[in-house]
Design a protein around this nucleic acid. Sequence first.
RNA 1: GUGGGCGUAGCUCAGUUGGCAGAGCUCCGGAUUGUGAUUCCGGCGGUCGUGGGUUCAAGCCCCAUCGUCCACCCCA
Length: 430
Amino acid sequence: MAKIKAIRGMNDILPEQTRLWQFFESKIRTVLGTYGYDEIRMPMVESTDLFKRSIGEVTDIVEKEMYTFDDRNGDSLTLRPEGTASCVRACEEHGLLYNQTQRLWYMGPMFRYERPQKGRYRQFHQIGAETFGMTGPDIDAELILMSARFWRELGIQDIVTLQLNTLGSLAARNDYREALVAYLSQNMEQLDEDSKRRLTTNPLRILDSKNPQTQALLDGAPNLHDFLDQESREHFEALRTLLDRAGLKYEINQRLVRGLDYYGKTVFEWVTDHLGAQGTICAGGRYDGLVEQLGGRPVPAVGFAMGVERLILLIEAAGSVPDNLQQKVDLFVAVAGAGAESEGLLLAERLRSDMQLRIQLNCGGGSLKSQLKRADKSGAPYALLLGEDELLAGKIVIKPLRGQGEQHLVDMAELTAVLKEINLGKGLEN
RNA sequence: GUGGGCGUAGCUCAGUUGGCAGAGCUCCGGAUUGUGAUUCCGGCGGUCGUGGGUUCAAGCCCCAUCGUCCACCCCA
């Protein structure tokens, strides 16, 4: 019989990896907490229309990358390809945007039907932050500074850079799009096939083409910033001043446009050259029009999302994986003999209650030799050895596994005190 | 959807002009009656991705197919 395997592009995250994931998530949560952001959890499945109306009908995501299916009622549902649309829907649906501001974050799997490659999978994970009800560049700056703090906490600050741009108002962008199309149409023969296609679907996307010839052609194209409206220009200048005063380095990239239709004014991307072709680890921007577009009253909004798999890869590439991730237990309890086995089980229970220790009990028997092998593998710094002799004498052996040090035979009654003395359980939080 | 690389033990990989299916790690046992991580000895472990073809003989050559990785496209 053929073995059933995981679906292409959907990965199991195994124990060795989940330790790193938990470290990562806990760092991010802590930082989000220091900025006063609240978690929101949305369903992974939404009405297909939600994404069509927010991301944009002609984007690749909607046209060919969504997992869409009919449920038993015949309604068209879609596995979410991103989080912003769901977040807006949830907030609007529950009145969270009515006369108030919100700072929210979410984390979870997203789904896009693409060919998998390094840092890109069909089920991938994002952590996103979305803010609502704030118009000014101060909240833009806060989000960007918060993301910068993530990288410092994760030890990858030296291998990421911030790209910053403003798209201007919708009207300004439309004017610019016309000018760009006019210019490129005059030079049609120099455009590659992909760009010709984008000329009719999403002309702004041509700006970040990887084709050097196309990029050369763009050097003579009209500049987006020459088309900016006054308000967007001032917003952008104010944001730059805030970032400058905070001492944050960035690079203005007029060709940074983002793939989703709902962005306007501020857009930014954190990129790295350590992940092959998938250089973007975090991206976001302002989407003041989206809430209204989805049927709510106009509410200004800014947010970003980061790719967890890519950041995990980057932490590894930076050599910033903490080395104490291996240690998952404080104490290993080895037992020899039937009487000791049941006594060991009860002892472990008691120590977990009394001392909040992480204890791995030897189950399944085996020689003391093999039990100590397991103890070593568990990563525990100490082992307790309980055999028939100790049981009869009311004593127990405590044996250091890591550094030097002799094992000691202690009275069972003294055990808690001795364990406290050697300071088990310290410095284990990641 | 397009292009290229790679599929051999649980993992990492050797495998010569086509001639008995291999190593290291892991795991189990022993050297040491109840002492790990070092050393030594032994053992478990295989549809060589799958199907077809060529051949006396295929892990190796040919065709197809699936999977995987990387890149294009797109995106976090």
